[in-house]
Design a binder for these strands. Structure first.
Length: 420
DNA sequence: TCTGGGGTCCTAGGACCC
DNA sequence: TCTGGGGTCCTAGGACCC
């Protein structure tokens, strides 16, 4: 029996979250900015039709913003994260086969459901999310994940009534693929599209009908999977396990560039601390830490420098002090005088399960799990940053801009929306 | 003056071993 | 002085995703 997948995603997620709590934004052009208020990462349909692209830097579109009175928000990840959790809980009421794919998207599986009821069932999901959260969503339904993505794309771009579009019949599938450029296919980005175009494959239909074995040799096993998926043969299964992250990255650009070693050290300590909290939350330990620093690659007048270095621990660890020491030594090794730095990043790799981790007999990497536990508990119950390591510094002068953030409507008692 | 921050997977090539 | 072939593991880098 062939499988059935649905891709549900929230339209213009961040913008829709802002609108859910501020109805005056409805039908108005709205954008939400990246961290540091750098560029537009979410755009309302009104903004898209003005031709503003995903990732457009704010300073380049400032004229359009003024001219069309576009409402501009800093990103408010606490709010979006909380809305995302609520969205997933609603989906879980409709099927037990749920893969959370990103903050605003989930794949659903409908094995065992009857085909003919599915239209009604999925339209009910759209209505329930709208009623419960005020968020508009669209759903694409098809026999493979790749086709479900495409169905979703059309559900949105054609503004299909009910918000749901299914792709099952050979006729409908061929029609959908005929005019779809290969770059719109899930898993085919800019580079691969260029290469496909060069050998005469421009549309999704042409790719579907190409020789799969030849393309596998020429590209990779992923390309062959994509081709089969376009034919309606599912090759990419639903991943329901909440799998632990295999790597943890914490990085931020500075509000202003700086050559101050101490400031870099504070930013490094801050990222290491956050990364370790995430690490302990998922009950993992890391075998290595990679520290990266770089200047601003967009600046033409500044001299450029970027470098990174990895530290491998004698034994996997989740101890913040151990990591802080290692990161400080790493920073000293790659820091060079005379450059204006813009970003520090910390990556933890080689993650292993903390609960089954065997301690080294000679315990060469001492750690203090009790202390870490206490620290995490206090910060969780009394608020982030209540206790911190001194090396993070107290001024946080490098911290990013976030000048137009909306209130934490759903996660902070003092910022609950009020009804007059 | 101002350009984000996370992730995943695959492959090629080197190191190393027998 | 001559010096094979094949396997595994690890890592860096490239491609993709949202």
């Amino acid at each position: 029996m062939s499988q059935i997948f649905a891709l549900c995603d929230v339209n213009n997620f961040y913008v829709s979250c802002e609108r859910a709590f501020n109805p005056a934004l409805e039908n108005k052009p709205v954008i939400v900015l990246s961290n540091n208020d750098g560029c537009a990462v979410a755009r309302s349909n009104e903004v898209k039709s003005l031709g503003i692209k995903m990732g457009a830097p704010l300073h380049q579109i400032q004229d359009l913003v003024n001219q069309h009175q576009i409402q501009v928000f800093s990103s408010n990840y606490r709010l979006y994260g909380d809305m995302s959790n609520r969205f997933i809980s609603i989906l879980e009421q409709f099927t037990d086969q749920v893969e959370v794919y990103s903050i605003d998207e989930a794949f659903l599986g409908f094995s065992g459901f009857h085909h003919h009821n599915l239209g009604k069932h999925t339209r009910e999901i759209v209505k329930t999310v709208k009623r419960g959260l005020g968020l508009p969503i669209c759903i694409g339904v098809a026999p493979s994940k790749t086709l479900a993505k495409i169905a979703n794309h059309y559900a949105k771009s054609l503004a299909v009534p009910g918000g749901v579009l299914g792709l099952f019949s050979e006729y409908n599938i061929a029609n959908a693929l005929k005019n779809l450029p290969v770059t719109e296919i899930w898993g085919v980005g800019r580079r691969l599209s260029e290469r496909l175009n060069r050998i005469g494959i421009k549309t999704a239909l042409q790719l579907r009908d190409a020789d799969e074995k030849t393309l596998q040799r020429q590209f990779s096993v992923n390309m062959s999977r994509t081709i089969l998926e376009l034919r309606g043969q599912s090759c990419i299964p639903l991943e329901e396990d909440i799998n632990k992250r295999k790597q943890i990255v914490c990085s931020r650009s500075f509000a202003n560039k700086s050559d101050d070693f101490n400031l870099l050290r504070q930013a490094t300590s801050y990222h290491v601390t956050r990364a370790c909290i995430k690490l302990r939350q998922q009950q993992s330990m890391a075998k290595s830490l990679t520290l990266g620093i770089r200047t601003n690659p967009f600046s033409e007048q500044d001299r450029q420098y970027s470098n990174s270095i990895s530290v491998v621990f004698p034994e996997a660890t989740d101890d913040t002090s151990t990591m802080l020491k290692a990161s400080y030594q790493a920073l000293r090794k790659i820091y060079r005088d005379g450059y204006l730095y813009k970003k520090v990043s910390v990556m933890l790799d080689g993650l292993v399960d903390a609960t089954s981790h065997q301690a080294d007999l000679f315990n060469r990497t001492p750690s203090n799990p009790k202390l870490m536990n206490t620290l995490d508990n206090i910060n969780q119950s009394m608020g982030k940053g209540t206790l911190q390591f001194a090396s993070e510094g107290f001024s946080k002068s490098w911290v990013m801009r976030s000048e137009r953030r909306s209130p934490d409507y759903t996660t902070n008692w003092t910022e609950l929306p009020s009804v007059k």
